[in-house]
Design a protein around this nucleic acid. Sequence first.
RNA 1: GGUGAGGUGGCUGAGUGGUCGAAAGCGACGGUUUGCUAAAUCGUUGUAGGAUGUAAAGUCUUACCGAGGGUUCGAAUCCCUCCCUCACCGCCA
Length: 424
Amino acid sequence: MLDIRLIRDNPGLMKERLATRGGELLAAMVDEVLALDGHRRTAETDLQKLQADRNRISKEIGLAKKQGQDTSAIEAEVRGIGDRIEQIGRDAEALDVKQRDLLLSIPNLPHDACPVGDSAEQNPEVRIWSQKPAFDFPVKDHVALGAQHGLFDFEAGAKITGSAFVVYRGQGAKLERALINFLLDLHSTHHGYMEVSPPLLVKSDCLVGTTQLPKFGDQVYHATEDDLYLIPTAEVPVTNLHREEIVKLEQLPIRYAAYTPCFRREAGAAGLGTRGLIRMHQFDKVELVKITTPESSIDELEKLTRDAEKSLQILGLHYRVIELCTGDIGFGSAKTYDIEVWAPGQNSYLEVSSCSNFGDYQARRMNLRYKDEKGKNRFCHTINGSGTALARLYVALLETYQRADGSIEIPAALVPYFGADRIG
RNA sequence: GGUGAGGUGGCUGAGUGGUCGAAAGCGACGGUUUGCUAAAUCGUUGUAGGAUGUAAAGUCUUACCGAGGGUUCGAAUCCCUCCCUCACCGCCA
């Protein structure tokens, strides 16, 4: 959520910066929120004047009654004020809700350091790690490799749940577990993140905090009976761990690493358009989350991205890092790096991590603050990124380490977790 | 799920429907005293809005005592609903 005061003071600049995201609607939304803000404040001022009157007169009634005077005339007068308070109060409340709703659906300002561009084609490549692996035999994709070794079973997933759900089996299930443990150990033991294991169901407030609601509600599974939502990413429960808190300056930066399954409806992506494990309704992910001061968030995003990259480096996978331009960054993000791992069987790069600095956008929505050196409460900055998404990492791993006979080599770092150095 | 007890400021803990944003204590911060520490003593000490102000400061004002409704001229205090915590019972991985 943007600061209404910034918008009030600098509407032109706000519109200009939002315009780099593309879409003509944003300028109109800024105008609308400004108009609402004016009306809201007028209503609020009127309301407060009446409340002040009522408070004053009610006190007088109290005093008069103590002296045994008759107060029925004044009481009737105050009753009239009460009615007006109720009316104007309702208006003010309605305007306030409207303003907040509108503010919630205006995206974040791109950071000054975010490259300007219209679409994904203009995303600059930041760096690239190692080279594409070369094969002297025809490569198979992970679906074929999985079938050969019985690693996972799409039919079984479809039978018990539906399409785009999968059952991992045998060594396939164990490889998944090995990757989870490897990633968690890497980030907790070696990169200093605190491991957390959060609930997979959350309240709607949490989704508002991390921006999935109100705009993207059709992407999350909703357990209506209890009004709880299945998390689409660990970002949601973990960032919200500190919602409505004032954390101490010494605690920052707070760093968490969490493994969770993630649930996404992928509504609108008819048929999902992909084969195999690349886009599922449920997938595993190890997520990194940071809560920082405004001064350090840019730097902490760089570090978090490097921490995520490290997992691919250790596993010996080829990848590239691209930076998203203003036309392509997510709704709440001010600056984002995507990490894309090479998958030989797809002959393409797969996004395995998206590392974003949200500035104070999420913190303002969830009222997450810290006390600065002067004892003043300020909004924190929040950062998160996958470290990394498991299913696609799994795809890259199988396809990169396949041999001519279809057997799969396990990278050395994973052997202790997997308990063998090959599949097949 | 049932019964009972609770939810008040950073913490502990008072609060008869009417100057209660809230006693007291602790803590924290500042001053005085003091050879240092300690002690003593005085003072300050919530948050978010609105109005005024070029801005800061200041001044005025509103809301907030788990959440949301209600009664009343007036609610921390009375009523209703919900949530959470604790204890016991029931059920259960």
